[in-house]
Simulated assay, not measured.
Amino acid sequence: MVRWQPHASERLVVAALELFEERGYENTTVIEIAERAGLTKSTFFRHFPDKREVLFGGGTMTGLLVDGIDAAPAGASPLEAVAHALDVIGREAFTADRREFGARRSAVIAANPELREREALKGLGLTASMIDALKRRGVADLTSRVAAELGALAWKIAYERWSDTNNSDNFGELARRTLTEVQAASALC
């Protein structure tokens, strides 16, 4: 086996998704994922702490969200700052060439309670990161929380829409439309 090959992390993610689809999450081992990717078990663990995390991108999304909120224009409202972060995610992570992967990933997660739980925990962490980033911008605690929660809900709905392979809208546009819809719906409550 070659000692170093580029894109090990991405290859591990693709191998894991393929195996989870073929055999199920429970019936797939880290060793099998590493072998499918042409790598070793130790290489797997250099990139991911466990097989659950292979589908969740480490801290990539958190970094994109925080950077997006931080980079929003100084006069942006809290929801505009969140929308700016969702735009960044659309440009950097949820690109058109990743749509099919997103749909496949969602199906694997939906089929496994452990992965659904992990997805929910990751979502809570992302929301907390948005809250913290908004507070650093000087946004009040409650306003930060409401904006982050609305942003997280919009993100979830937009991701479901975006990962539909029949949809051709880009994620940023979907997320902004969805955020507007969520904000309007919250005013009706």
Rank of each mutant, 00 (worst) to 15 (best):
E18T: 11
P78K: 04
S42V: 13
H47C: 05
A16F: 06
D50F: 01
R98C: 04
K41V: 09
F101Q: 14
L12R: 06
A96D: 13
R52W: 03
H84I: 02
H84R: 10
P73K: 07
G58P: 01
E92Y: 04
R52P: 03
G102D: 13
S42L: 12
E21D: 11
S42D: 15
V54K: 00
D67M: 07
D70S: 02
T43F: 01
E92C: 08
I33Y: 03
L86V: 03
F56L: 08
F94H: 14
L19K: 11
E21L: 11
D67Y: 05
D87H: 10
M61F: 09
A110F: 04
A81L: 02
R46C: 03
D70N: 06
T60E: 14
L17P: 12
A71T: 09
I31H: 15
T60R: 14
L79P: 00
G57F: 02
G68E: 06
E26Q: 13
F94E: 09
A71Q: 13
A74W: 05
L19H: 11
A72W: 04
Y25A: 09
E80Q: 13
S77T: 15
A15S: 14
A93R: 14
A16E: 05
S77E: 09
E18L: 08
H84P: 01
G90P: 00
G38F: 11
D87A: 10
V66L: 05
L64K: 08
G24V: 07
V14A: 15
T40D: 12
I69C: 03
E35K: 15
A81R: 02
R104E: 10
P78F: 02
T40Q: 12
G75P: 05
I109D: 09
V88Y: 00
L79Q: 04
A96S: 13
G58F: 00
E26V: 07
D70H: 01
L19C: 12
E21N: 11
G57I: 01
V14N: 13
G24F: 03
A16Y: 01
T40G: 14
A72F: 03
A37V: 10
V54F: 00
D87I: 03
L12Y: 07
A81E: 01
A81F: 01
E53R: 04
V66F: 03
F101P: 02
A15N: 14
A110W: 07
L79A: 01
L17E: 13
G90W: 02
V13S: 02
G102R: 09
K41R: 15
T43Y: 04
A74P: 10
A85E: 02
